[in-house]
Design a protein around this nucleic acid. Sequence first.
DNA 1: ATGGTCAAAAAGTGTG
DNA 2: CACACTTTTTGACCAT
Length: 283
Amino acid sequence: MGGLEDICNTGLVLGLGYEGKGDNGFKSMMNHQQRNRCHEFDRSGPMASPEMSLSLSLAHDTSIKIDMEKAYDKVQVIRQSSPQSTITSFSNANHEIISIKRERDVGCEDVEYSERQSSRASDEEDDGGARKKLRLTKEQSALLEDNFKEHSTLNPKQKQALAMQLKLRPRQVEVWFQNRRARTKLKQTEVDCEFLKRCCETIKEENRRLQREIQELKALKFASPVYMHLPAATLTMCPSCERIGSGGGGSGGNNSSTKGPFAVAPRSHHTYNPFSYHPSRAC
DNA sequence: ATGGTCAAAAAGTGTG
DNA sequence: CACACTTTTTGACCAT
């Protein structure tokens, strides 16, 4: 990032090169508010570059004009804020970022902004390996979101078209959709998780209730004279908990109050499988 | 003002 | 190519 000092000392700066660590270096020189302003500015302006020409003006009226229509994928105008302040940048065939700045007291926001935006124009980030993320603007996100609502995956043509529309690389569109699908899935997983937790609590509560019921029945059985006349074969004992249950079928309903104590077959360890639950079934 | 922390999101990597 | 998993960056918030 060799251009900073030049910016301060001259009326015109030609910054060449796009060092991967440059952004962070700049950021570390800024305080939080400045950084935040940079970010806000980032959001405000990405696609607002109405002028399709790039001019490099030197102090002595020397200028370079570039036909943006013809060289669109190689060159991107970043911003032309005012007649007094011209900030442009473009990437050449080797993806070098050239930032041009005029006006002595332009804040660092513009420098960073132009650099960030320039990275969008380059097909690859040849910045020496350091990753440089862009933050999508609200408009870009909204458009991507709209497209995602229509179809959560894109075919190559759609991807290309959307990338063109958003002035992003197809790869970025692809990544966005990939991450978006992942977020959707994660959200659904969280919903399922919450659902299962609630089901688990319901089942636990039911289990507690049934245990109480068993205890009551046991007490009732041993107290009742009917128990004495019941054939031993009709009573079974769970080997693991040593609780007594009636041996006959008992597909489980909890309608014990209507059929009397021995009509109930408490769900024992033999028949109750808590892992047979599936979230798609209602609790 | 500054630095620490955290969540969200962009991007990288590996696999089927 | 989509996906799962991971890494890295960014932005917001908070305490000092």
